[in-house]
Design a protein around this nucleic acid. Structure first.
Lengths: 126, 126, 126, 126
DNA sequence: GTGGTCTAGACCACC
DNA sequence: GTGGTCTAGACCACA
């Protein structure tokens, strides 16, 4: 199981789950066509409530990343994942906040580049 | 007044306030040494609760962007603004989420660059 | 075989089956007196569970559309198909919901007419 | 309170709630800019759980019919309500099913027209 | 006060 | 087995 939840984190558990699963797709630990672990089994494995997992899966479905088949949630092919206008707006706001913080805290381009590199490595390696 | 609050936005009002003020500093609409409008007056001007403005000011103080003087909150010189470890962690998480979303929604580097350019313009102009 | 099931659809498979068979009757791909494929064979052909096919057939029987004969389920003559009070109530609710949605989303009469036309074509041709 | 829930109905409570609120908007019992009753107060009034009401409100937000302001859910102006592609698909399926049933049960155009008229009256009069 | 998150445990529909 | 719905009750963030 590649999913790790930090209960003490500021982000809600279901948000952490969403990004862990997205990361799993990017790193191909989850492959298209595969069925995600069932709501209840994943909940048991990572020690959270069923409804919390369900909320994460539902939002992944809403974002067009998984498909709700009759026998569980299926990972879509990455080419079939399309971004919606509302998601673009969300990314826009987040990026605006980041850029404002980078400016006010005077992060150099070099520093930002390093940060991005280290994140890229983390995502790819686990 | 250069502050605009969207009550229907997903971000809490006090967070919007924080970024509007940071933006004011970056664009030099707020200059170092200047005293921010009083909690009471700003709350009245933009039609939000006093507690909300106070929370925003407190957090700006906590982030080391303003100083709590006897006569109000004073904008620091930008060179005196230092980033704390906890803030770096926060930016790290946010950037990680952004990069994961960019990857899963297959945003091209070109697209991201355009987005950044348009945000840069928005920050500087409006 | 004129039956196509979409496992990723919101409607349950047995409901999709029911409407596919009804469509077959309307378009005369299934003719009165004909025996429907056996539960087992249809389940195999379209790759669904036997129970699912059985449930669909049972409901078609309940709605008075097919007859449960010794040798299988027989398609009735369309003139012999009568609507029950409970089915009228169901159609009533569905139509109410549709009309409410049409009103709230401000679909023009023209738009609705076009939609109905395109559906009519789909039913008859596909 | 214009909301009536039938616990014995086939539709889930939260779906009933959604349509009751949409009906309230169409009949102008709920006016744009108005804040819906709070999740907890409505839950108390109609005797259902808070989460059930919340689910209905969330879906109304998702369908672009209400806005999640900080002080509650606000009814949008009807002109600002836009239909999404996915909702069109949903209406398409529902209408297809209705038309197939109308055909198989041989409802005359006259009969359908009457049904629509009676529903229109019900919606408008309560 | 408001909604948002989370847990726990139940029952049901579908496959 | 799967997810979907509903209840009950807790704690937290925000205004």
């Amino acid at each position: 199981m590649f999913i790790h939840i930090k209960p003490e984190s500021d982000s809600p558990i279901y948000i952490q789950l969403i990004y862990q699963i997205k990361k799993g797709i990017i790193t191909k630990q989850l492959v298209p066509g595969e069925i995600l672990p069932s709501v209840r089994s994943l909940a048991g494995d990572i020690g959270v409530n069923m409804h919390t997992v369900n909320k994460a899966y539902k939002q992944l479905e809403y974002e067009g990343i998984v498909l709700n088949r009759k026998n569980g949630f299926e990972v879509k092919k990455i080419e079939d994942i399309k971004i919606e206008e509302s998601k673009i707006k969300e990314l826009h706001s987040k990026l605006t906040e980041l850029m404002i913080d980078a400016a006010i805290f005077q992060l150099t381009d070099q520093k930002v580049k390093e940060l991005k590199e280290s994140i890229r490595t983390e995502i790819l390696e686990g």
